[in-house]
Design a protein around this nucleic acid. Sequence first.
DNA 1: AATAAATGTAATAAGTTTTGTTACATTTAA
DNA 2: TTAAATGTAACAAAACTTATTACATTTATT
Lengths: 149, 149
Amino acid sequence: MLHLNIDCIFAPVMSNTRFATAIHILTLLTVSPGEYLSSEWIASSIGINPVIVRKELSMLHEAKLVFTRKGKDGGSTLNKPATEIFLADIYIAVKNSEVLGKKNQCPNPLCPIGKRINEKLENLFSETDRVVINFLKDKTLAEFASQFH
Amino acid sequence: MLHLNIDCIFAPVMSNTRFATAIHILTLLTVSPGEYLSSEWIASSIGINPVIVRKELSMLHEAKLVFTRKGKDGGSTLNKPATEIFLADIYIAVKNSEVLGKKNQCPNPLCPIGKRINEKLENLFSETDRVVINFLKDKTLAEFASQFH
DNA sequence: AATAAATGTAATAAGTTTTGTTACATTTAA
DNA sequence: TTAAATGTAACAAAACTTATTACATTTATT
């Protein structure tokens, strides 16, 4: 079963879509148990470039969430049951920044606030991240994917 | 469980320094009660350009968190006690309203997953956003600033 | 009234991050 | 041997963030 390519009619306003991409990939794998889906097929469902999918799959492989087979009839499949994959795993696998963003790089060390702001922000930022991860750690990929039945 | 939220201000990652800048500004105002700090002075503490500070102050003014005086000896001060400003207020104030989320823009409507993924992500993103706001809504600016004593 | 010092904001440049594309070596089934 | 797939490097394009310049406006002070 192949998807047709659909041209996007919306204005190109996009920033980081890595979580959306990752969970889309994993949802497709979940609803196709035992099948090896190709990056091109996955890409046509998401509406992005197959190379981006392969890069994301590479991350998900590092996180041991998927298994990928090379060569003819190759593709990817889940590396464990969807009931054992948590949204926090996905979040951690793809995240490259904290929920509250980045710190300024050069606060003034001569200012009492500037001198210590980043250490305080580090605490706040990582606490906030922990809250998010805690929320996502009880939600399974299986649950998420079951919404599409 | 489905949610009715249309507006989504959560993104899996925030890759800018706006929250860090805003809380830095507000912390300086907190530890200088009654004083009007200039954008240039604030900028030199943060280590960024004064125009960026003024733009951020403009956002914080819209959120009614600061009061700004123009002209000579002008500058900004808190618009209410730091005990009544919550980190959630700051978080909400600095969100970029044009980016409601970071979903892929053109998932394939011919794919059962692609067709509905964004509505499901919308729910997940706004739920997660609520968790973050809930965490930040009990933390006051006063508390944060008191760490610098 | 003149001056100095500040904000507000538009326009634009520069820098950074994210996504897309091309190309091709490698892998694997048939 | 061939076809179809991954892996990944190198580069291009697009989007986003931050910095800079410029200047009109505002306001206290002399």
